[in-house]
Design a protein around this nucleic acid. Structure first.
Lengths: 357, 357
DNA sequence: AACCTCGTGTAGAGCGATCTACAAAACTCG
DNA sequence: CGAGTTTTGTAGATCGCTCTACACGAGGTT
């Protein structure tokens, strides 16, 4: 029975079966004021009997859609699922449902996905793409609770949530330096890529790196890549093939670091010869086969905070909030004290052979 | 200007500015029949000027929401992002937007997420959780185009899309056997877990394994775990510590295989001593540090097919379709010809020590 | 007894689009 | 050139819910 009529059963039907008005049913399902226990029981019985479920789109027309939207820029970056997990968990006991709008595979589709969420009248938006015009965001934030993750500019109409990228980069450099490395290279996205300007996470990591390196009296040195494991692999391969001493590589995020590890593996180098630090501490970093040293900025915590901020906004907070998460180093076996390269012919030959694999 | 009024701009406003009726504007934005070029231009100009965007929830009340929903059971399983990628790409040139509803971290929340999508009046649903009562799905399929991925029972009201799990398991076993392995163990989910009954992908992999092993005259042998890398690691650790000959392990999916690889790494075993095959061929499997042999059932292709099926349904197809994807082996370094274990005291001691790490 | 207050329920407008009729204008064509 | 056909645009109902305004009856006060 319940199953039979699943859709096409409306609040009207429930009202008829319960023998009350639509408004009464509406009150019950919204937990609104002014419902007697008897009425509630009667209505609830009718709801159960008919298997009634209110349609979100109809509710959204006047009230709220009970939906929180999260925009994620790259479904392949394993950092984002952590944010989702944190958010989903934080939302578990509420009546809100989380939906994700993935930005398309091409870049600069972030705004499009955010817009799609706004079009769907979600009650709040969490967005991660940073390459969105601020004016546009300010305007969106005026009508919809909005949390931007990784946006460092302060704003009037929306909340922000960032990791302390300046500090994170410093920690990465210091970690390599403490191990004894004196050549510390930063592998990051080409400046032509989105999300690389000065106030983005990647831009700040660049700045933090440059400052930390200068503070230690070392030369800054960059490898710029297009993004994705493959480009990082190629970039690292070029760097490491040309190098003959130990190199510490600070990759701007774990996805890139994995590409660097590919190159390290292909060249048969030890962690002492090529030490790699990533950023985000994704799940895979902890795997013993990777053992990637990484900067942790708890993604699950970020997700939970983002949801909290949204719910506060929905609850009536009018002042903007700007939260900062403090990163920490997760030291693993991908970094080690510097070690000279084997200069014997055998080693060189082996490396040579493995490059061509 | 465009930005200023972003929301609260309705079709009414556009109609007023363009000097036409609401219906005319509606026709233009839907590309409907009966619009002269001049009218179109006039309306389009007004739309651009005001920055008008139709609200999905209002459209959903009568027409369609132009939204396709995908339910995914476990955001941490890297196989699902591949499906999403395929689906997003396939949807790129249409007016449809893809949204994802993640099932909560607890199990058996699949139906809840699917229901959430239905409540939001999406025009089509792609769902991956298989542990949903069939009657419920049949009913849902009656009102909404629905594609179930990984559901092997044939259905009347919804389409299905599966990998040939029976064949995939056979390929895995045969691969290990061809390498020379004679002890081939299947590591899979405990039968108490969701999605393990006979007609689910995991159930069929078990059946395929059992049949293939029997066909080769070997004994079937199972390690049952709760799910997640950690439980697989623990299960594999127990298996491999007790074993003294070479073992071939066929893990029911890559996530579990990664856990097995952890155990292999901790015990310091070679690929010949413990050969591991996964299932799904997730991105990370190809990383040289993992080099995980895996059964590929193209996730991106699955996503693309799922979307195609949905769009066909929206377009009017009434007969159900049932697509099958043929899996193939991606052989990598995690599997190798069997190799005896070192029996010297040093080797045993080393293994012993590493277990306790 | 008349007046308030409070709790409970209902009527009915309204949200922003779509979509069915239908009217008016513009072509065909014998 | 008038009847028929096609094209183009509009009016207005409608989708399923929320929410404001209000009616009604029961108690409480003076």
């Amino acid at each position: 029975m319940t199953i039979q009529a699943r859709y096409s059963v409306t609040i009207e039907d429930v009202a008829r079966v319960a023998g009350v008005s639509r408004a009464a049913v509406s009150k019950v399902i919204r937990d609104a004021y002014g419902v007697s226990p008897e009425m509630r029981a009667k209505v609830q019985a009718a709801i159960d009997e008919l298997g009634y479920r209110p349609r979100a789109s109809a509710r959204a027309m006047r009230g709220s859609s009970y939906t929180i939207g999260v925009e994620i820029p790259d479904i392949h970056n394993h950092f984002f699922p952590k944010i989702i997990t944190g958010a989903t968990t934080a939302l578990a006991d509420t009546r809100y449902q989380l939906i994700i709008a993935p930005a398309g595979p091409d870049h600069d589709q972030g705004p499009q996905a955010i817009e799609a969420l706004a079009d769907r009248q979600v009650d709040g938006i969490v967005a991660i793409s940073s390459q969105v015009p601020q004016a546009w965001l300010e305007n969106l934030g005026r009508t919809t609770p909005l949390v931007m993750i990784g946006v460092h500019q302060d704003s009037v109409n929306y909340d922000t949530l960032v990791g302390d990228d300046l500090l994170g980069a410093t920690l990465a450099v210091r970690h390599l330096h403490d191990l004894g490395h004196r050549r510390i290279v930063h592998l990051t996205l080409a400046e032509s890529r989105p999300n690389t300007t000065a106030d983005t996470p990647h831009g700040l990591r660049v700045a933090g790196y440059a400052r930390a390196v200068a503070g230690l009296g070392l030369e800054p040195e960059f490898v710029r890549v297009e993004g994705g494991q493959e480009s990082a692999r190629v970039g690292a391969l070029a760097l490491l093939s040309a190098a003959d001493g130990p190199v510490g590589i600070f990759a701007a995020h774990d996805e890139l670091a994995l590409g660097v590890l590919q190159a390290v593996a292909e060249l048969g180098l030890t962690a002492g010869q090529a030490s790699v630090v990533g950023y985000d501490d994704t799940d895979i970093a902890a795997h013993p086969r990777m053992a990637l040293t990484s900067i942790n900025q708890s993604g699950t915590q970020m997700g939970a905070i983002a949801v909290r901020l949204i719910l506060e906004r929905i609850g009536g907070r009018t002042q903007t909030a700007h939260e900062v998460i403090t990163p920490k180093v997760m030291a693993r076996a991908s970094t080690a004290a510097p070690q000279a390269r084997a200069t014997d012919a055998a080693g060189a030959a082996r490396r040579q052979q493995q490059v061509s694999t």
